[in-house]
Computed example of a mutant assay.
Amino acid sequence: MAKRQTPALEGAVMTADGLSYKGVIMEPVVEKCDGCERIVTIEEKNFCPSYAQPERKWAHGVCNFATHVRATVDSEGKTKVNPLKASKRAARGR
């Protein structure tokens, strides 16, 4: 798949610190980002135009910008219920 420079990163400049775009230093993508359609290659390095620090987006699970990963439902198919709401429902008899 050929990666292209999108209009979102036009004007970005490679500096000694990394890719600078509108005063923000963009970090290269991490291995988990491989396969994402958003990846842009600039000077033989891959960057994410949606988020400056891709590693942080993967810190708590799946990156919400990832186009190559789909959300999964837990094995029991249950949804998380707010404990405060659950206690109020129990008090009302629902």
Rank of each mutant, 00 (worst) to 15 (best):
D17I: 01
E44S: 15
A90V: 02
Q53I: 06
K32F: 01
R38H: 10
E76F: 07
R92E: 11
G77S: 03
E27D: 10
L9M: 14
S75V: 07
G93M: 06
P83C: 07
Q53R: 11
E37H: 11
G11L: 09
Q5W: 14
V30G: 13
T15V: 12
P28T: 08
G18P: 08
N46H: 11
W58M: 01
A8D: 10
K80L: 14
V29F: 06
P54I: 00
V24T: 13
Q5G: 07
E27Y: 15
S20F: 09
A59V: 08
K78N: 12
R89F: 12
G93Y: 05
V30N: 13
T72H: 01
E44M: 12
R94N: 11
K57N: 09
V29G: 01
A12R: 05
Q5V: 11
V69M: 14
A59R: 09
A90W: 01
E27A: 13
P49I: 00
R56W: 08
R89T: 04
V62M: 14
E31L: 04
K32G: 06
S75T: 05
A12C: 03
A8C: 03
C48E: 05
R94T: 02
G11H: 08
E76K: 12
K32Q: 15
V24E: 01
W58N: 01
R89P: 03
E27V: 12
E43D: 13
Y21K: 04
V24K: 06
R92K: 15
A66M: 03
M26R: 06
I42M: 09
V30K: 14
I25P: 03
N82H: 10
V69R: 15
L19H: 05
K22A: 05
S50R: 09
V30L: 11
K78G: 12
R38P: 00
K57L: 13
C36E: 02
E27Q: 14
L9F: 09
Q53E: 15
N64P: 06
E10P: 00
R38G: 07
E55N: 09
V81N: 07
E44N: 15
C48P: 07
E43Q: 11
E76I: 12
E44R: 13
K85C: 02
H68V: 08
A52R: 04
C63W: 04
V81G: 02
F47V: 01
